[in-house]
Amino acid sequence: MTIIETRDLTKRYRRQLAVDRISFTVEAGQVFGFLGPNGSGKTTTIGMLLGITTPTAGEFRLFGEKGRGSLHRVRRRVGATLEQPNFYPYLSGYDNLRIAANVKGVGAARIDESLEVVRLTGRARDRYRTYSLGMKQRLALAATILGDPDLIILDEPANGLDPEGMREIREIIVELGQRGKTIFLSSHLLHEVERMCTHVAVIRKGKIIRQASVHDMLAANVVAELRGPDPVALGRAAGEYPGAVGACREDDGAVVVRLDDSDLGALNRYLAGRGIYVSHLGVRRRSLEDAFMEITTAGEEVAA
């Protein structure tokens, strides 16, 4: 089932085109990462999905519904936070959740459960303004899951957190994903997204430039790392290999080749045929960050 579907969604602020005709889909059960540098249009896109930013053009559906009234109704199945956690600083964490619970029509038991999930029960009666950033993010997560939503939308949930805080948030999100929730999260912390998400879309300058599963994104090309006595000659020969998509020489003398298949033997034979013998030949694990950098620096526009 398609949970989110956007078609040519556009937002213009006077002369600035913040989101430019973006189309993507999120299916049920996916943990979907929405990646992009700061200012690329992630928050504006989420704002439109949540009904707090009015699109300039295009349309979107949530749970197959569109139109003001229907969207307002299905948004009851959505839990979300946008940008930083937004709470009343003079109220306790518990009272902040009470306000959200009243809106969502859930009882006190559900507040306690949510606080338990985000491990904030012990500080629930303290004022929000006394919370650390990590606690504020966890309270935002608690508010998000309060109504037991089918779709959870999180905007930069690990922003500004220390490694411990990031780990806690990651564990909670992974746990929610394992419970079958559909999760849509925006982030520019690629290593975090790689560890949490099943699918990603990359947005740059308001345009979606790639949408794929994380597996496909990482497996798009095999990256081989080569070392030899003459890195310059090795780099030149590797770059001329017919199966090479690209090659570069790194500062430590390693030559990195992106291949269009995984046949390292063929590469080795090709190099040997040109009289170049390598001292090291191995597959370098490709990170989402590598893929992201390739996509965003190439500026290619790939249909999803």
Binding site: G51, I52, R75, T81, I99, A100
Partner: peptide, 14 residues
């Protein structure tokens, strides 16, 4: 200024 109006709408108020 606290953006709680935004959050109230996100939480489900029209």
């Amino acid at each position: 200024s606290w953006r709680t109006a935004r959050q109230n709408v996100i939480d489900g108020l029209s």
